[in-house]
Simulated assay, not measured.
Amino acid sequence: MINILFVCLGNICRSPIAEGVFRDLVEREGLSKKIKCDSAGTASYHIGSLPDRRMRQIAWENDIELNHKSRKLAGDDFYNFDYIVAMDEANFQDIRNQSYRSSGFYFPEDKLFLFREFDPELIKPDDTAQLSVPDPYYEDIAVFDEVYRIVVRCGAQFLEYLVEKNQLKK
């Protein structure tokens, strides 16, 4: 079983939609017995809360169910997950720092990614800010929709990467 963790700041917008979309992609490819996913936040602002209502609306409009309850990234996550996928550079750095504080080692570089590294619409930019999934929390519904479209693209490419790297078969 391959375990994936999607991480953003508060675990109510970007990482829950990434988790929901990715779970849907995995199920459609017949790989749900081989790949599991979850999401978490680097901050504890919204622990126990459902995803933002605007993110749930966008998910619902696209036949994705979001019923995840927000949780904070924990030390055990570095042992329980094979891959951790950050939504932006700040969270990427927080994950690296917390992995070291929690376990005495940095989570392996080849298992920790910025999600937009898998965005087929980006041409490997030098600026890591371009690799960020935008945080829609203080924005209007259009940005939530943009985030959805980004995670669909990235999720499909990330799943393709996992299938190839781990030689998964349905």
Rank of each mutant, 00 (worst) to 15 (best):
N67A: 09
Y161S: 00
C154E: 02
Q98T: 09
M87G: 05
Y161A: 00
I84L: 04
I2K: 14
E29H: 06
S32E: 15
V151I: 09
S44Y: 08
F22T: 12
P16Y: 01
A90T: 14
R153S: 12
N62I: 03
E19N: 14
Q157C: 02
L9I: 14
L162K: 03
Y148N: 06
C37Q: 09
P134I: 07
A156D: 08
S132I: 02
I2W: 08
A43H: 14
I35Y: 00
D52E: 02
C37S: 07
N91Y: 03
D126W: 03
R149Q: 15
G75D: 07
A156I: 02
F105D: 04
F158Y: 06
Y106A: 10
Q93M: 13
D52N: 15
P16L: 04
L73K: 07
K124E: 14
E29S: 05
R56T: 02
S44E: 10
V133K: 00
Y138F: 06
W60M: 15
T128F: 08
G20E: 04
N80V: 00
T128C: 08
Y79M: 13
R28E: 15
N3D: 11
M87Q: 06
A74F: 01
I4K: 01
M87A: 07
F105S: 09
I4W: 10
K34T: 15
Q157F: 10
R153M: 13
L162F: 00
L122I: 10
P120E: 08
R28W: 15
K72S: 14
D145C: 10
R53W: 08
D110F: 07
N91V: 06
F78A: 11
V85A: 04
S99I: 01
Y45T: 14
V7N: 08
G41W: 06
K34L: 15
L73I: 06
A40T: 09
N11V: 09
N11M: 11
L9A: 10
S102L: 12
F113A: 10
S44G: 15
I35E: 04
D88N: 06
A74G: 15
F113L: 02
F81G: 08
K170S: 15
Y100L: 12
E160C: 01
K36H: 13
Y137F: 11
D24R: 15
I2H: 13
S32P: 04
G48F: 00
S70Q: 07
E19R: 14
K169I: 15
A90C: 14
E109R: 10
Q130N: 03
F78V: 00
S132V: 06
L114S: 12
L159G: 08
R96P: 02
C13F: 05
V143M: 11
K72D: 11
S132W: 07
F92C: 06
D110C: 07
F118L: 02
D135T: 05
E146S: 11
V21W: 02
S49D: 09
F113V: 09
S39D: 04
E65T: 13
R28F: 07
F118K: 08
N80F: 08
S132P: 11
